[in-house]
Design a protein around this nucleic acid. Structure first.
Lengths: 221, 221
DNA sequence: CGTCCAATTGAAACAAGTCAATCTATGTGG
DNA sequence: CCACATAGATTGACTTGTTTCAATTGGACG
């Protein structure tokens, strides 16, 4: 797993020798790792579990900006800004690698490979964010949900029932919909046999069929 | 202007000496600089005018992903990917600086300051994209429009009437709304004396008052 | 003066949100 | 083992927000 991390090629010992504090931690579900506006001390790589990054409007409405899973990084905005731009909250029990930001900064300046890996992640995050802008701006509720569910499951190549730790409310906060509306859409998908759920897992028997609801009126990607 | 560009500190002659092709071009309004999926040859810096970056869904719906003005860069995804991720279309007559991507790539590897400047722009773009996700996901039409108009005008510090080259349709494609709905909201804002328009310019006499429509039910940023 | 395109307006259809009640699973303490 | 409490999910009825379609207006320009 450290292969596909930003430290590809470096062992834990290498990192320690370079002055990099690396702390492996396990936290329970619903833990707050940091809050929007907190002074940024650590960045994280996610080894196991799921995390949501949330922004909250002054009036209290919350928007999940990104969902993170195995292999994802977060908190790296602390390299450029003093404070975190969003809150990070675990959705499940989660294994993390906690990286001291000042040390990471120093390391990134010394090792081009590390710097490049971080830059690449920013680039990918930008790409993903732009795709989400399209989802939110140009698609209807049913299409957003169908697209999202298929994408979520496609991260588990083996198929079959996959872990699905999101509540209806969290789905709503991610997709820009009300809890109730999400619930209704999920029920409708189930009624049509497009998916089934069982306590924390989701099964999409035929994702091509579900994808037909992802971009109505016209053929789809 | 070259100060705040990615080539801060380098003169045009410096650039040419380093093998960097720099082409200053002027194009009319509604010019397509490149299309989504085109092989990426050039990146651009925008000296004067306005450009929209658009993504189109298979069914034809379009979403403006980003709006660019003086000093903004675009097309730089060509450094990481072979093809452009969106279409770039001018909204006005526009002065651009066209950069040959392979040469830029080489230059960026040689000069850390250039590389760092590009990285910084990606980081800012990510930040902006995440803010837009919140706008689209958590706000209602009126709030989105009010927020956007204020932000647009705040880029012109002098106040008063500012250039505003967007059609109602483009506003809709940016904010995820129908043309007609944008039109109605604009009319309503005008009726309330919150703004006025005159052939390509926009005037917001009191942006604080307009911002009260930007995040209803609760105090706002 | 007629043409064209954008903007506006109205009426009706539709999508999505809100509020309230119910249901279900899960866990708790008696 | 059984009430009971709790939190999330579901459902229904209703309201509000937004789109759609169609018609009209208005301005810019040849």
């Amino acid at each position: 797993m450290r292969d596909r991390s930003i430290f590809a090629g470096l062992s834990l010992d290498d990192l320690r020798a370079l002055g990099m504090e690396v702390q492996d931690i396990r936290v329970p579900a619903a833990s707050t790792l940091y809050l929007e506006g907190d002074r940024a001390r650590y960045a994280y790589t996610l080894r196991q579990g799921a995390v949501k990054l949330v922004k909250t409007l002054p009036n209290g409405r919350a928007q999940i900006v990104r969902l993170l899973r195995h292999g994802d990084l977060f908190g790296f905005e602390g390299l450029r800004e003093a404070r975190h731009r969003h809150s990070a909250i675990t959705l499940t029990q989660t294994d993390l690698c906690q990286l001291d930001l000042p040390a990471l900064e120093a390391l990134s300046q010394r090792l081009p490979s590390v710097h490049g890996a971080i830059t690449q992640r920013w680039f990918s995050a930008l790409q993903e964010a732009e795709n989400r802008i399209v989802e939110l701006g140009a698609k209807k509720a049913e299409e957003r949900l169908a697209t999202f569910l298929c994408q979520w499951c496609s991260a588990y190549p083996q198929g079959g029932a996959v872990p699905f730790p999101l509540t209806r409310q969290e789905l709503g906060e991610f997709l820009g919909l009300s809890t109730e509306h999400v619930s209704r859409l999920m029920a409708e998908f189930k009624r049509q046999g497009l998916l089934s759920e069982r306590k924390g897992t989701l099964d999409i028997p035929d994702s091509r069929r579900l994808l037909q609801h992802a971009c109505t009126s016209g053929a789809c990607a």
